[in-house]
């Protein structure tokens, strides 16, 4: 302390000041470094492969869905059962593909990695969202979370859950640039050979989907097409947009930081029913943690997240 400082009476103010410079989170850099080290050590315990349950659900579930088309053509299909099953498979398909995107079902160095890719391809066919496009735009989402101009998922931004439900429908309208339209624009903007290839695959997939619906409908299987594919696709997409995009990232505006780009929430459908999205923050922190492991990882890391200023109070999705 300088003599001038003593004379001007700043002794008290200096004494109250922390010894080390604090960041906006109120932590000094040593504390932040220690927390980060502990965080990485905890995350390492939960990173691994989702493995066979994911692959069996993706491939086996797809085979059942395909079998229902055969039953339809044999006039042995129960339409309500087909509608429920197809909707569940379509809705939960994206979360399996999501883990496949991050090679979390089987890693790249696994002899079963081809099953990781196959699971990803099949699981999103009912919602007609080809896996190559899903991978490219989802990785873009990770690098630009909640950026209104660069995050391909930003079109899901909504004031509350009811607005979000309406928004999922609105974004799918032919003249609105949301949902798959926003994804196609994002891939075009990325512009790599992989992105352009993904766009071509998407175009072919969309045309084949329409051709399949038209062929079934004009062959006398219109209601079967509605219950097996058209309506489940819309229900599945609505579920995926609400639970896998809106709920974990609401509110989006300005929340682009590592610890505030996702929120912790509770859902009336439970962890499985909400595809474990309540702990999506853990996924953004460590994408190599399989989705079913984000819950235990959250509880193991909760004290660190609290110290980082994360709201871990788990607010219900409906109240937000």
């Amino acid at each position: 302390m300088s003599e001038a400082g003593l004379i001007e009476g700043v002794v008290g103010a200096t004494a109250d000041r922390p010894a080390l410079l604090l960041g906006p989170d109120g932590l000094d850099r040593h504390t932040r470094r220690d927390l980060r080290k502990e965080e990485i050590a905890i995350a390492a315990r939960f990173q691994g492969e989702g493995g066979w349950p994911y692959a069996i659900w993706a491939v086996g579930g797809f085979a059942v869905w395909l079998g229902m088309f055969a039953l339809a053509f044999l006039h042995r299909l129960n339409l309500p059962v087909a509608l429920v099953y197809s909707s569940v498979y379509a809705g939960l398909g994206y979360i399996v593909a999501h883990d496949a995107i991050h090679h979390n079902i089987f890693r790249q160095d696994s002899r079963w990695h081809w099953l990781n890719e196959l699971s990803g391809w099949l699981a999103v066919l009912p919602i007609v969202f080809p896996f190559p496009l899903a991978r490219i735009v989802h990785l873009r989402h990770h690098t630009h979370v909640n950026d209104p101009l660069e995050d391909p998922d930003y079109s899901d931004d909504a004031r509350n859950v009811w607005h979000a439900i309406w928004k999922t429908w609105w974004n799918r309208q032919p003249g609105v640039k949301g949902s798959i339209h926003a994804y196609k624009e994002a891939a075009y903007k990325i512009g790599t050979p992989e992105a352009m290839q993904a766009l071509k695959i998407t175009l072919v997939a969309q045309l084949l989907f329409m051709a399949a619906l038209f062929a079934m409908a004009w062959s006398g299987f219109a209601l079967e097409a509605v219950c097996l594919w058209w309506l489940p696709r819309h229900l599945g997409l609505t579920y995926a947009r609400i639970y896998l995009s809106w709920a974990p990232h609401h509110p989006r505006e300005g929340n682009t930081g590592r610890y505030n780009n996702s929120v912790i929430f509770t859902s009336m459908w439970g962890d499985v029913g909400s595809s474990f999205m309540a702990y999506h923050l853990l996924h953004h922190l460590y994408p190599r943690i399989p989705v079913h492991q984000t819950r235990p990882a959250f509880y193991a890391m909760r004290h660190i997240l609290e110290a980082r200023g994360v709201d871990v109070s788990s607010r219900p999705v409906k109240g937000r």
């Binding site: 329409m210 619906l213 038209f214 409908a217 006398g220 219109a222 209601l223 097409a225 058209w230």
Partner: peptide, 15 residues
């Protein structure tokens, strides 16, 4: 438009 004549039309006709 194609969806209208390709899918909605046979759906209406069968419903």
């Amino acid at each position: 438009f194609l969806f209208g004549i390709g899918f909605i039309a046979p759906c209406v006709a069968q419903i």
